[in-house]
Nucleic acid binder design. Sequence first.
DNA 1: CGAGCAATTGAGACAAGTCAAAGCTGGTGG
DNA 2: CCACCAGCTTTGACTTGTCTCAATTGCTCG
Lengths: 255, 255
Amino acid sequence: MPNFSFGSTQGRAQPVVVEQARFHSMCDACESREASVCAALDEHDLHRLAAAAVVIEADPGRTFITEGDAADNFYNLTRGTVKLYKLLPDGRRQITGFAHRGDFLGLAVSRNYAFSAEAIDRVRYCRFSRRGLRTLLDDFPVMEKRLLDVASNELVAAQEQMLLLGRKTAKERLASFLLAQEMRKTPCVHSDQPLSLSMTRGDIADYLGLTIETVSRTFTRLKNDGLIAIFHTDHIVILDRDGLIRLADGYTLDH
Amino acid sequence: MPNFSFGSTQGRAQPVVVEQARFHSMCDACESREASVCAALDEHDLHRLAAAAVVIEADPGRTFITEGDAADNFYNLTRGTVKLYKLLPDGRRQITGFAHRGDFLGLAVSRNYAFSAEAIDRVRYCRFSRRGLRTLLDDFPVMEKRLLDVASNELVAAQEQMLLLGRKTAKERLASFLLAQEMRKTPCVHSDQPLSLSMTRGDIADYLGLTIETVSRTFTRLKNDGLIAIFHTDHIVILDRDGLIRLADGYTLDH
DNA sequence: CGAGCAATTGAGACAAGTCAAAGCTGGTGG
DNA sequence: CCACCAGCTTTGACTTGTCTCAATTGCTCG
């Protein structure tokens, strides 16, 4: 599911500008074109789109959008995984989502980003100026439709996450998370391949509204219940998908 | 802030169709036109919009959108307040938001509503068919832009709510809620008028991811702290706005 | 005036948090 | 090649904020 969010290109050291994406061929051969909003454009329109973009790479841990900063740019992720989060003054953190190849970041009506974005692994993205986006959307209404669809899906996902954060138990949260991860990796197809998690226990905890310790203990409980198997902490095999689904959907009254 | 959400026109007894909104004057004189997406349209376009709408009234407690039902219609609320929620099989409920005059409901990419909607007080809304919306948006790109803006704002609000549900204490949640309610009622202006809450303690609890008892106790604690005064359970006066803001923003380490 | 519902308050239980210690893993350099 | 360090994860013991259960109060309306 594409991500659509809000969140300055600043950090300890600047991310690396890889290329000016001013050639038609740039977007034409983009590794994530089908996955992104750019899929809505035909060859000719891609040319104009490319003229407005700068391709940038960022190392793991790099924060390239900071909550509260002026929302001057928006981003289209073409490679890697990014975590989006909000902070409270005392350091409490809530990860509001993970963005992947094809996802759109930084769209905001307000003058400032409402969240921060940090690369989890090595990341590549296209950067557009806010003004650039506006004229682009005016010229290509089809992209606007696409953005609306993406935003609608994001809203559905956000509501689901509110249900999780407000009403589900730790076990239910982790079950929901694992199923969502698997669904994202291989939609529909149920492979027996282990699911590899790119995020740490801390990230999972901050995404599910739990602590690291509770996430760890809950992994162990799911393992002991025979629902999953764990290899090397970040490779998970789902042993009982139906059981996990029942758990995630809140059917369990027993523990 | 306008609401933009997802959630069949069904319930125990059907809501009352008040009028076919087929006359130009209908939307022209609409009590919530400025507040809604319709504000984007000029006189001429309003004519076409009205042709597609049915005006309906519903009593308090009426559920007019049910999660999981086919998403055949979408709605524009013109009067009253609506709660939007998701349920787990055992009855646990999460209210994902409250919709007010001017808010848009039911926009969904998926075939089914992702949430239910229930009238809190007497409600009036315009109902459009899904197909109607599609052709409308095709004809009036300006409305699509408007919807995108609304959806963007909703997403920002949803992220804020995730922070609240995942990381804030009961006191912080209620403080955030009260400030948001006041902000919605009188944006910017800080009146000394008591804030009147249209929802029950149960609704507030299900919105904040708490129980009725905790909400009640937390109201009492805020009162004892001198932050608010409570009249008649549903009329609140904010006595110390700055204190409440600090609390809501998570600055408090003491209690 | 009593039925019914919402809200409050109290007492005790429990799920998840906190604090602390130890295990595991991967990288680095002697 | 191995020892050591640093960071992540797991596990244990204990605490606590919120939930659950239950009783009481207060309000509204017939």
